[in-house]
């Protein structure tokens, strides 16, 4: 379960949890409302102190008036790292969380040691469109995120039994995602221009069957960051941390061990 904390900052209360012990690892989660990736976080927590915030606007955190775009999230997390005095942080982000991680890192890598992005939003590749999560039904939003449709059905069965609080949480996450992602859709045109400012080791982890952020988009990242490593996970959709939690955590840990800190 981890331990619960909150940070009151610039008029908003932001909730986060800490798991395990070791070097600091900040996990910026994706925008979907699927349950946490417990197996993934547990695997990482055996080697790191994993910090998992509910992003401003999402889940249990407040929606502050200053939350207008992805840049506001990036500056918030730079403050967050300072407030918690996290140093040499291993930054991990999935989907929208991956986009946030990149926006933080182009501003400054001062407190960052390594970066792992899992199927991140943030940059586009013309001719390789993102999936339209805002057009999809709640069912499609689960089905199209996963390669394993039996697993998708498990999540859907759980969702059918959900409480109204969870339904509200689903809508809250969706509203927050729209605030950040609606237009330009899932990317920031400036980000691609400044990606070379990321001066820390970076690994991209991608499912080979991603319908939300097709793996072809990795090419845009690689052109801007030729040193970045691309690790493909087979038979996997948009959420490797949920479909292949151990393999994904292992890739992150071995990358961190390899590049040193």
């Amino acid at each position: 379960m981890g331990s619960e904390f909150s940070l009151a900052w610039r008029g908003a209360t932001i909730h986060y949890r800490r798991f395990g012990q070791g070097p600091a690892l900040l996990f910026l989660r994706s925008e979907d409302s699927l349950p946490e990736a417990p197996a993934f976080i547990d695997s990482l927590a055996q080697h790191f102190e994993v910090v998992v915030p509910d992003h401003p606007g999402f889940r249990t955190s407040d929606t502050p008036g200053w939350l207008k775009g992805i840049g506001d999230v990036a500056y918030f997390y730079l403050d967050f790292l300072e407030q918690l005095d996290l140093r040499s942080v291993h930054l991990v982000g999935g989907s929208l969380g991956g986009w946030m991680a990149a926006e933080i890192a182009v501003r400054t890598c001062q407190r960052i040691a390594t970066i792992n992005l899992i199927a991140p939003f943030g940059v586009r590749r013309k001719g390789t469109p993102f999936g339209d999560i805002f057009m999809w039904t709640p069912e499609e939003n689960v089905q199209h995120r996963l390669f394993d449709q039996a697993l998708a059905e498990q999540f859907l069965a759980a969702a059918r039994a959900q409480s109204p609080e969870t339904a509200t949480a689903y809508l809250k996450d969706r509203y927050a995602a729209a605030r950040l992602c609606w237009h330009p859709r899932f990317h920031n045109p400036e980000l691609e221009r400044w990606l070379p400012r990321i001066v820390r080791p970076l690994q991209l982890i991608w499912g080979d069957s991603d319908k939300v952020v097709p793996v072809g988009i990795a090419e845009t990242w690689r052109q801007a960051l030729p040193q970045a490593r691309l690790s493909i996970i087979e038979r996997c959709g948009h959420l490797p941390q949920i479909e292949h939690p151990k393999a994904t955590a292992d890739k992150i840990r071995s990358f961190i061990n390899e590049v040193g800190t």
Partner: peptide, 18 residues
């Protein structure tokens, strides 16, 4: 028109949408 098209996030408050 399915709800996703008719009521995109923010078009109404969450409470009105529900």
């Amino acid at each position: 028109i399915p709800p996703e098209l008719l009521f995109p996030p923010g078009y109404t408050s969450i409470r009105s949408l529900q």
